[in-house]
Design a protein around this nucleic acid. Structure first.
Lengths: 204, 204
DNA sequence: GCCAATCTAGCACGCTCGTATTAATACGTC
DNA sequence: GACGTATTAATACGAGCGTGCTAGATTGGC
């Protein structure tokens, strides 16, 4: 038998090329020809690893998801739970080119998922897993005494997640209006506030 | 002279058709032929009012922007400033089909604006005007004594805006995971918290 | 009733798209 | 070194795209 290429590795390589194209030209700019150019392969060989374009795009989305999750896992080295939460915030905001690329791909897919029945369950999945990260982190912080015990975990998890996703959207769509440093401080400040906010919850 | 059609009215009619198509099939599903079908006109007559597709899309984005702003203005009837702020939140969240359509169009355009140089300044504009609404509302509430005087207006305006946009993204991309009522309570609760949150600001 | 301006419809063009098919190439095994 | 398979490249095709162009329909003013 000949060459014996690592299929999964090649698929990841092509998916990364897709992500670069999406970050540069948007989802609308993704055609097999452009991706083939970006990856340095011919369009014919691509079809050997992905029989259809949808398959390629779906794999690329999963790839970004994996990359993000991988970086989130790396933030476990933080000594405190709140430290990990702060690290997670920094991993999700588009603070460098890689994170910016991931944010752009995420936004493109989320937008398409609203009207693409095939992508919708994947978008819901991405949301759920990120939500679990946030809620789990807050819960652990509460149990470790780093956050007040009466914190509404589901509520605050959802709030933090929405805040960060909103900031991501703003940072990539209006970068000259909202500075990255401003967004960072905003998100971190929000997390800090959770330490004190629960004492004086409103009656209604 | 013949018919004497109201051009602006016709343009708005076509733009509304574009919005319906975007909400149904996404930005990728927008072709002149589909829009013409949706509007009940021929593709040839459309070109009488929009010489190019980009022109049509740009006009459609402005149209949604106008529609949202119009509804926000209508919320001025609220007696208190905080009441208006709560009303604004309800106007922006996709709580019915119309608001949902506007949210879908907004998300599609925001996503495309990240890689479309022509749309980028418009996206920045949309952000700015909404930011002014939030900051202005908070400032007025502070001056009316409805919110504490030491509130950081820019910070809290940006935070509220990010929170709402994040909730919008979640509601349209993972509607079965985050309920509309849950999102509403979250946003309104956040606003309520501003009344008390400024007293115990963290040192850093 | 006819003219001319306004509006509508439709076709044709060149292009790009995703995909299918097929030929050519590389290489481990015998 | 030849064989057979894994891999790559290239071409072809039908469909749909945005747009240019033109013929026809409509209608208020003379």
């Amino acid at each position: 038998m000949p060459k014996e290429v690592d299929h999964e590795e090649r698929r990841r390589e092509l998916a990364d090329a897709v992500c670069r194209v999406i970050a540069r030209d948007g989802l609308a700019g993704v055609s097999l020809r452009v991706v083939a150019d970006e990856a340095g392969w011919s369009i014919g060989s691509m079809r050997y690893y992905f029989t259809t374009k949808d398959e390629l795009l779906e794999f690329a989305l999963r790839r970004v998801d994996d990359r993000i999750e991988q970086r989130l896992d790396a933030s476990c080295v933080q000594p405190t739970l709140l430290g990990r939460a702060h690290a997670v915030i920094d991993e999700l905001l588009p603070l460098d080119v890689q994170r910016r690329e991931e944010a752009l791909v995420w936004l493109a897919f989320v937008s398409r998922a609203t009207t693409d029945a095939k992508l919708a369950p994947m978008a819901a999945d991405v949301w759920s897993r990120l939500n679990e990260v946030f809620v789990g982190l807050l819960r652990a912080a509460v149990e470790a005494g780093e956050l007040p015990a009466d914190l509404d975990l589901v509520r605050e998890g959802g709030r933090l997640q929405a805040l960060i996703d909103g900031l991501v959207v703003h940072l990539v769509s209006a970068p000259e209006r909202l500075g990255t440093e401003q967004a960072r401080e905003l998100a971190h400040g929000h997390l800090d506030q959770l330490r004190a906010a629960s004492e004086e919850r409103e009656p209604a």
